[in-house]
Design a protein around this nucleic acid. Structure first.
Length: 831
RNA sequence: GGGGGAGUGGCGAAAUGGCAGACGCGCAUGCCUUAGGAGCAUGUGCCUUAAUCGGCGUGCGGGUUCGACUCCCGCCUUCCCCA
């Protein structure tokens, strides 16, 4: 079907005249977006008679400006899945909002003098518009932005509740400090020793900071049996929490520092008889006391040098391990030996006890260290069949205890327990559980965040802001300088307040909360529609939570997802929630790349708007889902999108055909089989997020429906039912197109409120089947046989094939295999 | 160094242990046409062939099996996470 009189330019949507006959996305998408919103078809009631609630949530975006193609890749398939669940009969609630506090807004202020508030809300507006253009079926009545006072007020509320219950505390300590962003960072935000946001190497800085006591929940956070999450994410969380069981043991140094011991932690107490030195972190408090005058100069120089290194440098396995002697010795409590105490920068003060026992024979790093400094390497866990010779490298696996006093001869597995027993019974140490997980550092020396509701009074100390004074409003008119102080600290009106307890002049806390606090509980706020003077609506939360399906990128595996689980458990223990986990099911989409490279604004840009303009939102949605399995990511190429556009054009064309003249017969079985097979495939694939194969199935079905029409071998009514089925399956994928065609083919009401078609297994099976026939496992023919054929008949039929017979000549049949409905395999050997 | 993915045509990819390459891109040939970034039809893994037949083929090397992209063992490459 071609139109005439088209101009050469603007062939996509600039046509006039016969537009109604052609698929022209621009003509229909805006119309339906407006109508859906006016009709409120995606607004979820908190309960619907006869329907189960289904909370579909996708990690909300940071409004950085434009939604880029990566956002589309995350949100469009997620929206399709939520639409699919709605058509499966669930009362679906799919909200959207904005995680709108954070550094980029503030950096825009510092770099370009833009007001962070204006910048942020302008971006939110823009993102909202783009979500609408995507055709996303969000319940906008639940929208929230975390930078709104009515949201962040409740961050402050939770902070106070945590504080009252010992879950929030302030501590002077070594914090991760990003010199570029001029702020502290949580451990989770340090990647490879650098700031995860800007890549600047992170240094340690002593500061008083606020923490959430997430480590109190370390053990419970390790329990993940009841959540249906990718094993990969669970593993990452387990590794991050990093529970290890071992033994803490003290090495006496009273000879040099009266009454003192060096506490060390080891998971390999079985090797304790092999200790030939002990290493302290340069920051260890005993270094000063233990350094002998003769070694003082060398140690001090070493410590200065170490202070200039980043943690990543210090712990890199590539780098040579260095150390320096203190001149002191300590006593191994197991064998009474006197071993040297060194300072080494590969030991970090912030992990474990800040000191390690050196067992060169059984630890890789200690081995290298001992070789370098000529320290003794004493084997105490003998490798199997060890000849007593020098080791080439440290022996890490299990072995037989040796040089270990009364424990000689035990396997090191048993030795570990026996030695730990002895240490505990003699009170020289204890079994200890340690975690890699640290408490969550939540203070940020930044402006664009939630003010921490604390006041410091000279007389009363740390005083929480009274609940009725919340929210502590983030002031306007602040000055931005990258000088490591929160702009709030330079805002006198904000800072100086009377003490809530005594009324004397006092100062506010000027740090703000880590923005991950905002995203730790937003799902509860989405579930609590229109809460008035409370953080969450407990009754509504019960109706919706936990989230049925959570979707988002795997980059949040150990930050957001862990914090959110912690929040849920903490709020449960504070009496707000009655469930343990926030997200029942988790799906991680993969990364969208272009030319195998990460998409980036500067070097590898990819924006959706031109594609939407040219092909429409439906085409882009479907194309992103057709690229490949969603969880494995996709590789964008411009050329492939035409295939999807053609398919949607074919759907348009076939659905709008006039079937009134159809009155043939004979093709009904074909059409039934195709219909029910398609439904079976699509229902299973959509449920499992396999959008790519769903679309393949629908492409094939589109061809079948057109073929039956062309063949004219089905009655009109039956053909039209198949077309409706096609549209219903297309609806979650290409919502505008399906809605337009649904209306044009005489239906009333939105297609998105319809239910998915069902399938009848008995209509899928056919009377005849094609059997593959193999000889020696190689395909030799394909034969058409009755579907219910038995083994003997199938084999007989196979042998009657001339091509098969040729391969059986002069052969003796060894075995005959029949796989019902699939194939025959004849195994032979030369006769 | 540890943990986890992934490796299949020119490209994106599909395949409960059972006909490898569905579906789509691209390409080729043809049709249509007011010549165009449109539409339709047919073909398209590689080698051989006029065509069949046949042979080869899922990163590499072994193994289990009547039968392996799929399961097992050992490598290689690559991506992500953690050190």
């Amino acid at each position: 079907m071609t139109t005439t009189g088209k101009s050469r330019s603007g062939s996509e949507g600039g046509e006039s005249g016969n537009d109604s006959d052609r698929y022209t996305p621009a003509n229909i998408e805006k119309k339906w977006q407006a109508k859906w919103e006016a009709d409120g078809i995606y607004e979820a009631a908190d309960s619907v008679e006869g329907k189960e609630n289904y909370f579909a949530l996708t990690m909300f975006p940071y409004p950085s400006g434009e939604l880029h193609m990566g956002h589309w890749y995350a949100y469009a398939p997620a929206d399709t899945h939520a639409r699919f669940k709605r058509m499966q009969g669930y009362n679906v609630m799919q909200p959207q909002g904005f995680d709108s506090f954070g550094l980029p807004a503030e950096n825009a202020a510092i770099e370009r003098g833009e007001d962070p508030r204006e910048w942020t809300y302008k971006n939110i507006e823009n993102s909202r518009r783009q979500f609408r253009e995507m055709g996303a079926g969000y319940d906008w009545t639940r929208e929230l932005s975390t930078s709104d006072p009515e949201y962040y007020k409740w961050n402050q509320y939770w902070f106070l509740k945590f504080y009252e219950n010992g879950l929030a505390y302030r501590k002077h300590g070594q914090a991760n400090w990003c010199p570029q962003d001029q702020t502290t960072l949580a451990n989770e935000q340090v990647k490879d020793g650098a700031c995860e946001r800007c890549g600047t190497p992170v240094i340690k800085r002593a500061l008083p900071q606020w923490y959430f006591a997430i480590t109190k929940y370390a053990d419970e956070l390790l329990e993940m049996d009841q959540i249906d999450w990718p094993e990969k994410i669970k593993t990452m969380q387990r590794n991050w929490i990093g529970r290890s069981t071992g033994t803490t043991i003290g090495f006496d140094v009273s000879e040099f520092a009266p009454g003192e011991k060096i506490e060390t932690f080891t998971t390999r107490i079985d090797t304790v008889y092999g200790v030939t030195f002990v290493v302290l972190a340069p920051e260890h408090p005993l270094v000063e006391k233990l350094t002998q005058p003769s070694h003082k100069a060398a140690v001090e120089e070493y410590i200065v040098h170490a202070g200039r290194q980043t943690e990543i440098d210090r712990t890199s396995t590539e780098r040579e391990k260095t150390g320096v002697e203190t001149g002191s010795y300590c006593i191994n409590p197991l064998n009474g030996e006197r071993v040297p105490v060194l300072v080494g920068d590969y030991v970090l003060a912030t992990y474990g006890t800040g000191a390690v026992m050196g067992v060169p024979a059984h630890d890789t790093r200690d081995f290298v260290f001992a070789k370098k400094y000529g320290l003794e390497i004493r084997v105490v866990v003998a490798p199997p069949n060890w000849d007593g010779g020098e080791l080439e490298e440290a022996w890490i696996p299990v072995g037989t205890q040796l040089n270990s006093g009364e424990f000689d001869g035990l396997s090191s597995t048993d030795g570990k327990e026996a030695i730990a027993d002895k240490i505990e019974s003699e009170n020289i140490g204890t079994r200890t559980i340690t975690y890699h997980l640290r408490d969550w550092l939540i203070s940020r020396q930044r402006y664009w965040g939630t003010p921490i509701p604390i006041i410091y009074c000279d007389d009363c100390g740390t005083v929480p802001v009274p609940e009725q004074d919340l929210p502590v409003i983030l002031p306007e008119n602040v000055t931005f300088e990258a000088d490591g102080k929160s702009p709030l600290a330079k805002h006198p009106d904000f800072m100086h307040v009377p003490c809530p307890d005594c009324g004397k002049d006092a100062k506010r806390e000027t740090d703000t909360l880590d923005t991950f606090v905002c995203s730790s509980w937003y799902q509860l706020r989405f579930a609590s529609k229109n809460p008035l003077e409370e953080p969450i609506d407990i009754e509504k939360v019960k109706q919706w939570m936990p989230v049925n399906q959570y979707m988002g990128g795997a980059e949040h595996a150990v930050m957001h997802l862990l914090y959110s689980r912690f929040f849920n458990k903490a709020l449960r223990d504070l009496g707000y929630l009655d469930f343990d986990e926030p997200y029942t099911k988790l799906m991680n989409q993969g990364m969208l790349v272009k030319d195998h490279k990460k998409i980036s604004k500067r070097s590898n840009p990819l924006t959706p708007d031109p594609v939407v303009e040219r092909h429409g939102a439906d085409t882009l949605r479907c194309y992103l889902m057709f690229l490949g399995p969603w969880d494995q990511g996709g590789d964008w190429s411009d050329s492939g999108i035409n295939g999807i556009r053609r398919w949607l054009g074919r759907v348009w064309d076939v659905v709008l055909r006039d079937e009134s003249g159809l009155n043939g017969s004979g093709g009904e079985k074909h059409l039934d089989r195709a219909s029910h097979t398609t439904t079976k495939r699509v229902l299973a694939d959509m449920e499992a997020f396999k959008f790519n194969t769903s679309i393949s199935a629908l492409m094939e079905f589109t061809t079948e429906v057109a073929r039956r029409y062309d063949a004219g071998d089905v009655p009109a009514a039956i053909w039209r039912v198949a077309v409706d089925r096609l549209l219903l399956h297309v609806a979650p994928l290409a919502p505008h197109l399906a809605e337009e065609l649904w209306e044009r083919t005489g239906h009333t009401g939105s297609i998105h409120l319809e239910l998915n078609p069902k399938f009848d297994e008995s209509l899928i099976t056919s009377d005849t089947i094609t059997l593959a026939v193999q000889v020696q496992g190689k395909l030799r023919d394909q034969i058409e046989v009755a579907a219910d054929i038995d083994k003997d008949a199938a084999i007989a039929a196979a042998k009657s094939s001339p091509n098969v017979a040729r391969h059986l000549e002069n052969m003796a049949i060894v075995k005959e295999i029949y796989v019902p409905g699939r194939l025959v395999n004849i195994v032979v050997r030369p006769a």
